[in-house]
Design a protein around this nucleic acid. Structure first.
Lengths: 137, 137
DNA sequence: CTAATGTCTCTAGCAGCTATAGCTTCAAGA
DNA sequence: TCTTGAAGCTATAGCTGCTAGAGACATTAG
């Protein structure tokens, strides 16, 4: 049996975050000690590892809750899990594309030199005038 | 003179967001009509355009406030503006790199096929077992 | 047994909005 | 001029995913 602090150290998730995940319904409320402190078993540890990894990959709390609930029954088809992963991957790819467009704009702005005073600062001008942009954002 | 709704339509910023920017100190409180409604002039319109563009490029409210305050005096050097832009560009590049690592992991997970049941679902397995990952995240 | 550390609950705060409620004002048509 | 419907006002709460604090109680090492 692990205390919440031990679990925190082993998973790398902070103590208040673990309590937050419990509140959000991502982990089952664990047993308690005589003095009302949370006591976790191996299953709790594994569950938190799963959550941590999923969060690190950018999955939302809601997606993780879905994945956990469908992982309950080992016999069920897992199409939905694949779907969630694919959806998320698509979302990430969109984000990357968007950021790359921003990055291109910022690089262009960065590289345009000016006389060094606010009056003709190209950074400020570029921000004021959207029509200078090479792509949508 | 424009009402807040006209400004919203012209800038593409929603009405409550404009009020929020005012509260955050990004725009000067505009004049008011006899009945206490906000009335904007061209300067207000331009300022909001600047903010919209800066936000679209991902700059934070704080950064934008800085940029606005240093843009007040046309004679001042604008090194700080360049610095803010460069800092932000670096930040975006980091974000892109991070997302690309995630994307690689997700693609790997997506492409690993399994028998289709939760019991040996590769998506769930990959999420449970961080050691399968090819890079840090 | 004591002192230090850990844990408990509850509440509030972060960013950047968005939504709602209950009210007042404005503008256009009859 | 009156009316009606849209638009505006303020104030407050909610969203995501945590994080930080207060004040009280539990556990554990020495």
């Amino acid at each position: 049996m692990y205390s919440i602090g031990q679990i925190a150290r082993r998973t790398g998730i902070k103590v208040p975050t673990i309590r937050y995940y419990e509140q959000m319904g991502l982990i089952d409320p664990p047993g308690r000690s005589a003095g009302n402190q949370r006591r976790y078993d191996e299953a709790g540890l594994e569950r938190l590892g799963f959550i941590r990894h999923a969060r690190a990959l950018g999955l939302s709390i809601d997606m993780i809750r879905d994945l956990i609930s469908l992982a309950q029954d080992k016999e069920m088809p897992c199409d939905r899990a694949h779907e969630i992963a694919a959806q998320h991957a698509a979302h990430i790819r969109e984000k990357i594309a968007r950021l790359q467009r921003l990055e291109a704009e910022l690089t262009r702005i960065e590289n345009s030199h000016d006389s060094g005073t606010v009056g003709d600062c190209h950074v400020l001008a570029a921000l004021t005038d959207h029509s200078q942009c090479m792509s949508e954002h």
